[in-house]
Design a protein around this nucleic acid. Structure first.
Lengths: 336, 336
DNA sequence: CAGCTTTCTGCACGTTTGTGCAATCCGGTT
DNA sequence: AACCGGATTGCACAAACGTGCAGAAAGCTG
């Protein structure tokens, strides 16, 4: 029809005709004066560039049993990702993270300050993000990623860079080690202005996105294997009865963190600071993380929880059969 | 897999897997233990029941020329519906109204009070509404529909009933004639408590949805042909220089309504009252309505405008070539 | 419980959609 | 102008999808 068709405009037209008027791609192609295949490509462009937004709204009253149970018990917004229990761990992670990415995107607004942790879960999430145009959004790295072997920059920065690209946001790295060797060094670094700039940003976070580590995990998280901790550290964690971590900050089964010395050397935000953030999104895939997850929930670290179905089921069952049911009950009364 | 599958839950699962995890229907069928065709049907259920919400977000800066021009000039949120100019009037109406229905739905919140007019446009919109679960929403008829031949109940009530069904809302009819024969009768009816109940509701409207009538329309709107007005009335309208109407309330080219006597006998809300509503959505299809549309825009009756592309184009051109070309030119200089 | 109506399901078929590939276009460079 | 590399297009084929239809299941009635 017309000549000078910037692709964006064609994509918009196509999307409107396809999604709002139920036209076939063929009809759209004829109107746009191009081939059907091009329309197909325009539409996938439109989807990926966030022009088309598809979301699934669960009326809370019609949510599945499982979701209601978790929502009630832990007072979190929960999204249970349906997955066949025949899938292997990696496939499940992938599905959970794809759905997580698409669930998170609508929550991101302009001028948000988004804290992002790192790890295999977040890496998978970042790979599935769909675009959304926002203004003034900032992505800030939640915790350092350096370790004894590498500076960890590429791995963690890759993740937050993907977030930045998806939302058109500025990206702020946190170039410090995951754990300091000496708490004193950390205290001094925390006084540095370059670090303070990041800490300030972190205090202004409106959204945090993180996974959990779990100490009894057979496949231990990066933190426990990647040269971040030595055997003394791990012994000390076990001695303190640690259940897991969020952004390299540890906690116990019951959500407490007092007296866990390693936290004094960790670069992640204290649990208290974390809890101040309005929206705290926790993504978990795999039943091996149950222990850490329960701790995180007991600590009230998450406002939103995205997890796979098997883990969700186990969470509900595990809690009912927990060693301290009364405490669990109290928690659920206190709105954690 | 499991047995006792309330269909709703299956539909939710399917929708999540399809739209959030990019599974094929085949894979979903296998997991749900049913056939692919059933999944296809579940998904269309999920779409129609409003479980899946697809919307198209136009970043204002990347909107087509036409939209920007109208948005700037008339200060309304505008949605130009792309349609091939080879389509006939009825097809265009259908497309516009389908897209209108899908554009309106996301704007409806719980506890909204939605005023709905009647006419061929609104009838078409109502036929394309998609469901959305809301609570405490009320649909109220904007203006009476009785005329000298019928009570007009079935036609208008059909429209608002469809709105009610789509949003799970209570429906309030307005059982009065479109035009009273005597202004005095109207004044007295307006004192009746049954009528006052509706008027009260109308004062609490948060959204109004209407088309426009246009006096020079070759195919005159129902109001001008369906036994609502007699020839004396029509003469009087022409004598007053009327351009069109919204919900059976008339106005001139320039948006004024002072001194149009027929309005004293009309059952629709005064223009002043209309303008108090937060969100006023005007749906227009077909260039024949240009005159009425321009009047309505001049009167500031709409906050949101949904119209087809040809009409949009003509609206922009008509204005540039208006009796005051310099003004039009200036407009176009100002970044329209 | 038989007989009827209504709803649901899977199959088969035709339609619609995604994508690898080769041809083409386009902007920049030599 | 000739050349080149990357992006874009349409084709052809395969994959994915929607839907009329007939049989099965579930309600309903007497």
């Amino acid at each position: 029809m017309a000549n000078k068709h910037p692709k964006q405009l064609d994509a918009l037209r196509a999307a409107q005709m396809y999604y709002l008027q139920d036209q076939t791609m063929d009809a759209i192609a004829r109107e746009l004066g191009t081939s059907r295949s091009t329309v197909s490509r325009l539409l996938s462009m439109a989807r990926e560039s966030g022009l088309v937004q598809i979301q699934i709204k669960t009326p809370a009253d019609r949510a599945p049993e499982l979701e209601r149970a978790i929502r009630e018990r832990y007072k979190v917004e929960v999204h249970v990702v349906p997955v066949a229990d025949t899938l292997n761990e990696i496939e499940v992670l992938d599905r959970v993270c794809m759905q997580a990415a698409r669930t998170i995107t609508p929550l991101v607004d302009s001028n948000a300050v988004i804290g992002v942790a790192w790890g295999s879960t977040l890496s998978a999430v970042s790979r599935h993000l769909t675009r959304k145009t926002t203004h003034g959004t900032v992505i800030v790295q939640l915790n350092g990623a350096g370790n004894t072997q590498t500076t960890g920059i590429t791995y963690a920065s890759e993740i937050i860079r993907r977030f930045g690209t998806a939302y058109g946001a500025k990206v702020e790295q946190f170039p410090v080690p995951a754990f300091f060797d000496h708490a004193e060094t950390k205290r001094m670094m925390w006084e540095e202005r370059s670090v303070q700039r990041i800490l300030d940003l972190q205090h202004r976070m409106t959204i945090a996105i993180f996974g959990v580590g779990s100490i009894d995990s057979d496949v231990p998280s990066h933190v426990y294997s990647g040269g971040y901790l030595d055997s003394t550290d791990i012994d000390s964690l076990e001695a303190s009865g640690v259940a897991g971590d969020v952004a390299t900050v540890f906690f116990r089964d019951d959500g407490t963190d007092a007296g866990i010395v390693l936290n004094d050397r960790s670069s992640g935000p204290s649990l208290a600071d974390l809890r101040k953030i309005r929206r705290r999104i926790c993504v978990v895939s795999g039943t091996k993380k149950i222990k850490g997850l329960r701790g995180a929930l007991a600590a009230g670290l998450a406002t939103d929880l995205i997890l796979d179905e098997s883990t969700a089921r186990e969470l509900v069952e595990a809690e009912s059969a927990s060693s301290d049911p009364i405490f669990g009950f109290l928690n659920s009364l206190e709105g954690l």
